[in-house]
Design a protein around this nucleic acid. Structure first.
Lengths: 230, 230
DNA sequence: TTGCATAATGACTGACCGGTCAGTATCCTG
DNA sequence: CAGGATACTGACCGGTCAGTCATTATGCAA
């Protein structure tokens, strides 16, 4: 089965073979191929030979750029955790707290629903006992950072009175849990009755609706929507 | 490093070595050792030799009980997914819907917080591309079944008027997502700021509180608590 | 065009490990 | 206390694959 996919891929790269290329480009080729192969099979199950073939280079070439398999894997993870959080964190806040919150939530949702994300997540968690620092890195760079950003948006909404303050503490973690788990379920058709989860936007709306229900200001005090806290 | 652990383990089983034992007992020994080793390192990374040593048998003995490594892994998963759902599903329902709901939720929480659960979960998900039927099995036997049970409890609460019906559809999936994700976070000290998640009961209370907030009947329409759907 | 520096190759090596099986220990029966 | 039956053992085999390195191709500078 691998034989066929090879014939599909070879031609594209064939022209490049045996051609000297800038170091960065070669490295990128290899990293990309590594993501595909590792993602499809896992760390141990993937043969360096396959990565090389997919990248259109010989096995030995990989060792010109990475000292060994583990380093390649590690570097692949680091590079693929592309976080566009910097821009998002530094971007000017929408004065409307709720609009700002929705924008951030939808960006997060889009991020975890990219096809690369679940693959990355699975690789990081599955390789946990072997490379705990990777887990740390992933957590630091993705989970916690997003949670902090979400929490700041939520807090702004609380100050505006759009959200009640009862559920505010930890609510970012709750939202994170809801979105993450739904994204992972969506990515694993087998894992869950994925029939209900086909439509990405519908799922997001449902999650957001549920979250908003929990966050709506308490009881019958719907009257004082004008934002005076306490 | 393995040499030392051997000396620690051997004595305990030494008496058993070379002693014939009932088939079931031997099998259980091997399964248990398999869980420990696979759980610590993953499928590919685990050597059959290590499992044998931990179980206090020779490598060949494993093959008297299991045809190969994969079958051992599969069987280990099947056995370890001990589901006490049968009893729970058939147990008499508490007439108080809310009390019943709480009981089920806490049982689920206890289940996913047992030390075996996160290990099992990680193994099942990490081995996904290799053994998709295992994923199916796990999903069918654990996730979906629990969700159905939760949903039936929630529906009962809705009929009682304790929960509003707006958020009822899919709410079991929401609760499942919240609990599962929190349990997994708790199991991975690195993965998240586990400081906030030390106290198992406190986390459960917080999740349940959040969930209940989302489910509380809407706004001022507390009047039509009489449960006529339409 | 030549020749050098180096990028790239892929056959090769050696360790490793899943799986086997001839041999051994143990138990049981008569 | 035979002697057969079988649970158990662990040295061994063969395939696999990470990592190496002598060789070859390529681009560039003179």
């Amino acid at each position: 089965m691998t034989d066929e996919s090879v014939t599909l891929i070879e031609p594209a790269h064939k022209a490049d073979t045996r051609t000297r290329r800038p170091a960065e480009e070669r490295e990128a080729q290899i990293i990309e191929a590594a993501f595909t192969e590792f993602g499809a099979a896992g760390f141990e199950e993937t043969r360096l030979e396959d990565i090389a073939r997919l990248a259109g280079v010989a096995k030995g070439t990989i060792y010109l750029y990475f000292p060994n398999k583990e380093a390649l894997f590690r570097e692949m993870i680091r590079r693929t955790v592309v976080v566009r959080l910097d821009e998002l964190e530094n971007a000017p806040r929408d004065p409307d707290a709720m609009a700002d919150f929705h924008r951030v939530v939808r960006t997060y949702w889009a991020y975890v629903n990219e096809p690369t994300f679940p693959v990355l997540y699975r690789l990081v968690t599955s390789v946990l006992p072997r490379l705990p620092e990777l887990q740390q890195f992933f957590s630091e760079r993705v989970s916690l950072r997003w949670q902090r950003l979400l929490q700041s948006c939520i807090d702004a909404c609380v100050r505006d009175g759009a959200f009640g303050e009862e559920q505010a503490p930890d609510s970012a973690r709750m939202l994170h849990a809801l979105m993450m788990q739904h994204a992972l379920m969506r990515a694993n058709p087998t894992m869950c009755n994925a029939i209900h989860l086909q439509d990405s936007d519908a799922v997001m709306d449902r999650v957001l609706d549920f979250f908003s229900a929990a966050m709506r200001p308490a009881g019958h005090s719907l009257a004082d929507t004008n934002g005076h806290t306490h």
